[in-house]
Simulated scan of single mutants.
Amino acid sequence: MSDEALAERGAAGAAAPVARPVPFRGGGFAPRPMRLVGLVLFLVLLGLWELGSRTGWIGPLVLPAPTAVFEAFRQLVVSGQIWLHLGASLQRLLLGWFGGTLLGLLVGLAAGLFSMARAGVVPLVAALFPIPKIALLPLFIIWFGIGEESKVATILFGTFFPTVIAVYGGVDNVDRNLIRMGQSFGLSWLSIVRKIVLPGALPAILSGFRISAAIAIILLVAAEMIGAEYGIGAYILLAGNLMATDQLIAGVAILSMLGLAVSWLLGRAERYFLRWR
């Protein structure tokens, strides 16, 4: 090789770019924790709300100031009425949601695992799920009376159907190749269900629990507005009848905190049961 060719090769090598490390891209779209963003946004909205109330842009009857709402909430705590209302609501919510979730879980698993149950359950759920459950409350009052049974039945009936749909859909969407692999290794039917089907369907099931919990809170308020002495819904209805908007917003804030608490508990359950992901 001539001296000129060697010189050209050396110049080309010197001009070659330096290799740089490629950044890691295998995060799998994992969300980054940003806990302060939601708190800052909430405080900004509260500040704008308070500013609008103090400057007269927002009328006190239309929407009271956050300080007035906080004072109404404080009075509710000091008087002890909050524990009566909150205790009654939590009792109804837990009984109705747990009952509807347990029944929905059993029926959804049956529909996802057995052809006979699927043929009977899926059309029935499709026909009854679109019915507004609060419209059936008068019928439940006729059946169970004006007491706690009709309110719990409304919540149970309303949470049953979304749970069935979530469980059935989660079981039906489990990868069939994993099931065939378990069958090829000689696993029993029960082992396949316990080790493959249930873990694969668990994300959809827990998402269904979130939806059913939100529906349960909505139905709780609606049921308590009909013939209930204590409960958050009864407190909001009474405040609305008295035009006490500060107390009304305080009751709505209690429902919001209740929803946040339920969401936090379900989030903890998701992190525990889905830690294998």
Score class of each variant (00 low, 15 high):
residue 214 A to Y: 00
residue 215 I to Y: 05
residue 215 I to C: 00
residue 215 I to N: 04
residue 215 I to E: 00
residue 215 I to A: 05
residue 216 A to N: 03
residue 216 A to H: 00
residue 216 A to D: 00
residue 216 A to R: 03
residue 217 I to W: 00
residue 217 I to R: 00
residue 217 I to A: 01
residue 219 L to N: 04
residue 219 L to T: 01
residue 219 L to S: 05
residue 219 L to G: 01
residue 220 L to D: 06
residue 220 L to T: 05
residue 220 L to H: 10
residue 220 L to M: 11
residue 221 V to G: 02
residue 221 V to P: 00
residue 222 A to S: 07
residue 222 A to D: 02
residue 222 A to C: 07
residue 222 A to I: 06
residue 223 A to E: 06
residue 224 E to L: 12
residue 224 E to P: 09
residue 225 M to Y: 05
residue 226 I to R: 05
residue 226 I to N: 02
residue 226 I to C: 01
residue 226 I to H: 00
residue 227 G to A: 14
residue 227 G to W: 10
residue 227 G to M: 10
residue 228 A to T: 15
residue 228 A to N: 15
residue 228 A to H: 14
residue 228 A to E: 12
residue 228 A to I: 13
residue 229 E to Q: 15
residue 229 E to R: 14
residue 229 E to I: 08
residue 229 E to C: 08
residue 230 Y to K: 10
residue 230 Y to V: 09
residue 231 G to E: 11
residue 231 G to F: 04
residue 231 G to K: 10
residue 232 I to K: 11
residue 232 I to M: 09
residue 233 G to Y: 10
residue 233 G to D: 06
residue 233 G to H: 08
residue 233 G to V: 08
residue 234 A to R: 13
residue 234 A to Y: 15
residue 235 Y to Q: 13
residue 235 Y to I: 10
residue 235 Y to D: 04
residue 235 Y to T: 07
residue 235 Y to E: 07
residue 236 I to P: 03
residue 236 I to K: 04
residue 236 I to D: 00
residue 237 L to P: 07
residue 237 L to T: 13
residue 238 L to D: 08
residue 238 L to Q: 14
residue 238 L to R: 15
residue 238 L to Y: 07
residue 239 A to N: 04
residue 239 A to M: 09
residue 240 G to N: 13
residue 240 G to L: 15
residue 240 G to P: 08
residue 240 G to C: 08
residue 240 G to D: 09
residue 240 G to W: 02
residue 240 G to H: 09
residue 241 N to D: 09
residue 241 N to G: 10
residue 242 L to F: 02
residue 242 L to K: 12
residue 243 M to H: 02
residue 244 A to W: 07
residue 244 A to I: 10
residue 244 A to F: 14
residue 245 T to W: 07
residue 245 T to H: 08
residue 246 D to Q: 15
residue 246 D to M: 12
residue 247 Q to E: 15
residue 247 Q to A: 13
residue 248 L to E: 06
residue 249 I to Q: 02
residue 249 I to V: 14
residue 249 I to A: 10
residue 250 A to G: 13
residue 250 A to L: 11
residue 250 A to N: 07
residue 251 G to C: 12
residue 251 G to I: 04
residue 252 V to L: 12
residue 252 V to W: 01
residue 252 V to S: 02
residue 253 A to Y: 09
residue 253 A to G: 07
residue 254 I to V: 15
residue 254 I to Y: 06
residue 254 I to M: 12
residue 254 I to H: 02
residue 255 L to F: 11
residue 255 L to D: 05
residue 256 S to R: 05
residue 257 M to D: 04
residue 258 L to H: 00
residue 258 L to N: 00
residue 258 L to R: 03
residue 259 G to T: 06
residue 259 G to V: 04
residue 259 G to K: 09
residue 259 G to S: 12
residue 260 L to R: 01
residue 261 A to Q: 03
residue 261 A to T: 14
residue 261 A to S: 14
residue 261 A to P: 09
residue 262 V to H: 07
residue 263 S to M: 01
residue 263 S to L: 08
residue 263 S to I: 03
residue 264 W to N: 06
residue 264 W to Q: 15
residue 264 W to Y: 14
residue 264 W to H: 15
residue 265 L to Q: 09
residue 265 L to P: 04
residue 266 L to D: 03
